[in-house]
Design a protein around this nucleic acid. Sequence first.
DNA 1: TGTACATCAGTGAACGCGCGTTCACTGATGTAC
DNA 2: TGTACATCAGTGAACGCGCGTTCACTGATGTAC
Lengths: 215, 215
Amino acid sequence: MVPPMSETATVADARPYHHGDLRRALIDAARRILENEGPGALSLRAVAREAKVSPAAPYHHFKDKGELLEAVAHEGWDALGDAMGAGLETAATERDRMSAIGVAYVEFARDNPALYRVMYDRSRDKDELPEQMQMDNDGAYCMVRDALRAKNPGSNDMDVELATIAAWCAAHGLAEMLSFKQFEPLKAELGGEEAFMRAVLEHLGMFAKVASPGT
Amino acid sequence: MVPPMSETATVADARPYHHGDLRRALIDAARRILENEGPGALSLRAVAREAKVSPAAPYHHFKDKGELLEAVAHEGWDALGDAMGAGLETAATERDRMSAIGVAYVEFARDNPALYRVMYDRSRDKDELPEQMQMDNDGAYCMVRDALRAKNPGSNDMDVELATIAAWCAAHGLAEMLSFKQFEPLKAELGGEEAFMRAVLEHLGMFAKVASPGT
DNA sequence: TGTACATCAGTGAACGCGCGTTCACTGATGTAC
DNA sequence: TGTACATCAGTGAACGCGCGTTCACTGATGTAC
């Protein structure tokens, strides 16, 4: 009788006692859980399970659950910044830059809804946006500001700053609204979700109290 | 020896076995917990505790925890609609209506942050905004749409609809951004939080791709 | 007006669950000599 | 090159906890006659 595959690991199923890069694996596992099961399922134990490791193992890499969440959120902000940068590249003209960034932002949120929620989740709260969102470090926030400055030459700094914040608010709001069912007829009428997104963003001026701020 | 206050309840501390309106009391208790301890603390048991009732009592009024949350969220939407209506009343001129509603919206979210989160969490779970947000029932959504129609006479229906959604997105985004610490210097510079809110909302047009949609 | 009885709205104990975290441990790795 | 030993990164069992929910119950209320 041929014995089943020996217990001593073959090269193929070798799972060394030491993982190699468990930290990385845990963050990846967390993202997998987020997207497959939502933020409610994201427990430390679930992450360990997903990474095929004991419940205590993560503690060699993260002080506690909060620190893991922090790392996941940090990667999320990086990824969002990358997505916005990639969107910017697609803009044909300078005038298109803002909407290209906006569309990239909203699509990122749509495609990574649970991650996006973790990023903004205040329960770990510091009442602070991450480094990528600071006003002075060439992060995503500055990318938007630069695009706005280019689009509105001659605007004063305060106006550009406020418009940047307004843009971020609008994109965030749209990102959270996009998936509500009641907009589906409108999306269909406009020819798809991206058209809907652009249409909403283009109508912001109609809502604003003053069409040309700073005048 | 004078016996201590009789076990048989005096009029003052009469707590009848039957509560009278436990459903109401549970919803109020939930709101108290939300604002004092945040959404994370909102368990059915905590609500029962807060209402000074056994953990099983709520089941005579709500099928399960979800149904209680639903009731809390429903009241939240009503309260938000009321706040927006009250804001509308304060608008001196027709032109001010939109910003009056917007300010009222954002202030409601600022003053009831945990309730506000529950409202949108429940909606997101169902992929549906509540009745107050439907496009055809004289709710809060329609209030915004009417104000926009009045402000932009002659606009076609689609433009008004899209601008309404844009306004809602902007207000929601600002509501969630408002309390981040990094905006504090800006608020101070502008002379306070309300000035900041108005300034951000007024700058939306600068972000929009097209200043006058529909042209 | 009294009384029997059904119904309603509570109680309190118990259930099983998954959670975050700790602990003593052990296997694997790296380093000093 | 070989060996002793410190350190690192895992294991697996256990802790106490609060949770949602169920259950048999009981006190209070309302109704029929």
